[in-house]
Nucleic acid binder design. Structure first.
Lengths: 313, 313
DNA sequence: ACGACATCCAAGGAATACTTATGGCATGAC
DNA sequence: GTCATGCCATAAGTATTCCTTGGATGTCGT
């Protein structure tokens, strides 16, 4: 009454119609005959009319039965199609992953992972949106992305939205970038002590990224003189190459692009930023997302140090 | 796995999607929240992936969920359509009745009943096929007719197919038909004794119908001299009008047609034929058939004597 | 006439569905 | 900060539905 017919009984009726008899339907279903008989009885009671004529050799559909059979076939087809669709998603013949990643990852590991994912599962539709971690988190929370590659500098606690899960997948060291003409830019890739740069001008970006620099300098015993502001690693290096300052850039950014006029040096004791995969709690139950996670891990593994990841214990 | 998704759970999922939350679906269904939650859980386990994301204010569908919702909507629409179709049959806005009836009924009471039925239920599709009782029985058994008007002469037991139900609906008296020039055809509609016709020539038809005549003559103490054979009451009367014999015809046949050149007289003690409605056992559970039965009874009631019909007790 | 087959009915046991009870988590008001 | 509200999950118990068992009837074919 509330809805239409009982779909389960409708499918049993379909078996009856297909088998041509109640007993035949029971055999097809692996049931006993009265079980099917009772389903038919309930259907007929609800319909208020006979759906089949009981003949000595089986049953014949009435007009109402023929009508119902058409609908039953359509329902069965839909149920099968639903199962098939889910199966296609499970086997990754179909499916969509919407990635979000910060710029230096979007220019390096993420395209490599997308390529790997597409090689493994050509049917998957991968889409990337470049976004800094806070924005990526927003995208995830708003349902506009399924999986994000994010990072946090040492000592920073990313303020993810509730319901998001963050898994560390590696560490990305910060490297000192100097003009080639800088006194510390001696050949040999020798480590540089930050204290030797207390008098230099610095280039830093947004609060989130500048915090890493300030913390490192604080530990080295000075306050950096930040003269220029940008998050763009190409802009940063253009300024540095012209001798307008020095800066810290993560290795991924330098992998993406290193300006000819700069020198890169490690800084002992400088804590790396941590890379994370972030996603809504349930999306790791989605095959396409799981495959994307795997591809990202496979690409990241040789490039970044493992960072307290239990899966890699 | 054997079939597609569980349709019942699919409909519950549809409620979740529509309500936007599990608790909302539970309210809509008049259930408690865990009931719905468990259905969703089972669906997700069978699907092997998350169908919804659990957010603080409710749920959001995943790609798989959106896919499934489309199928769920289609299934629900079909179930509703099935219920609507059956409802149309139950309310006789639609439906088919295939009648079979012997000639004299097909020319008299049956068209009247069809007219009555169509007046009451314009949406019903009534179809008539003229057939003598044995053929009508075959049609019913073969599923080519839903309801038959049949008859049997006194003392005859119709050999209906198994599974057919026969209900007496009235009696149709046999009347003597004479040439107007016949000595017994005196005016006044006076009853005629069969014995006075022992020397006449007779007209009779098939074995089934001739048996009624022979039995009546046997009871009157003679064997009729059957000179001409036809079941057609027009042919019969044409022969009689020309003085080529006498015959017995049922009142329905004479209602359909009485030749100008014949006289009709009652014969005391002549037993009438019984009229029946015959149909497969379950077809009286079909609204259109039931309505046809009612229309036939309503038309027959004033025209034929009730014949041991329990419904008319 | 008997066995094979298809049906229905009635009653009991088993699987499933729903409820109750409880806890976690996020949001918004005081 | 704390409390109230709303959403969801889990676990265990009850209830209902479902299917089986064990009859009996009726028709067909040997």
């Amino acid at each position: 009454m509330t809805h239409g017919m009982d779909p389960h009984r409708l499918l049993v009726f379909r078996e009856i119609a297909h088998a041509g008899s109640i007993a035949g339907a029971a055999r097809a279903l692996g049931w006993t005959q009265p079980a099917v008989s009772q389903h038919l009885r309930h259907l007929e009671r609800r319909a208020g009319m006979a759906l089949v004529l009981r003949l000595p050799r089986g049953v014949r559909l009435t007009e109402a039965g023929r009508l119902l059979l058409g609908h039953a076939d359509a329902v069965a087809a839909r149920l099968q199609a639903a199962a098939d669709d889910l199966d296609a998603l499970a086997q990754l013949r179909e499916g969509t992953v919407r990635l979000a990643a910060f710029p230096s990852a979007s220019a390096t590991v993420v395209p490599a992972a997308m390529d790997l994912l597409l090689r493994r599962h050509p049917g998957v539709d991968v889409r990337l949106r470049e976004a800094e971690p806070p924005e990526a988190s927003d995208l995830l929370a708003a349902g506009e992305a399924d999986l994000a590659v994010t990072f946090a500098h040492a000592g920073q606690e990313p303020d993810d939205h509730p319901g998001l899960v963050r898994t560390p997948v590696g560490e990305d060291p910060l490297l000192l970038v100097l003009p080639r003409s800088h006194p510390q830019a001696v050949p040999g890739d020798r480590p540089v002590d930050l204290r030797s740069l207390a008098a230099d001008g610095w280039i830093a970006g947004c609060e989130r990224c500048a915090a890493g620099l300030r913390r490192a300098c604080e530990e080295a015993g000075f306050v950096p003189d930040v003269r220029h502001g940008t998050d763009d690693y190409v802009v940063t290096q253009a300024l540095i190459a012209r001798g307008l300052g020095v800066g810290l850039l993560p290795r991924l950014a330098l992998d993406a692009f290193t300006a000819p006029g700069v020198a890169v040096r490690p800084v002992p004791g400088l804590r790396p930023r941590t890379l994370y995969l972030t996603h809504p709690r349930e999306t790791d139950q989605i095959p396409a997302v799981r495959a994307a996670v795997q591809a990202l891990r496979d690409v990241l593994a040789p490039r970044v140090r493992a960072a307290g990841d239990p899966d890699h214990g």
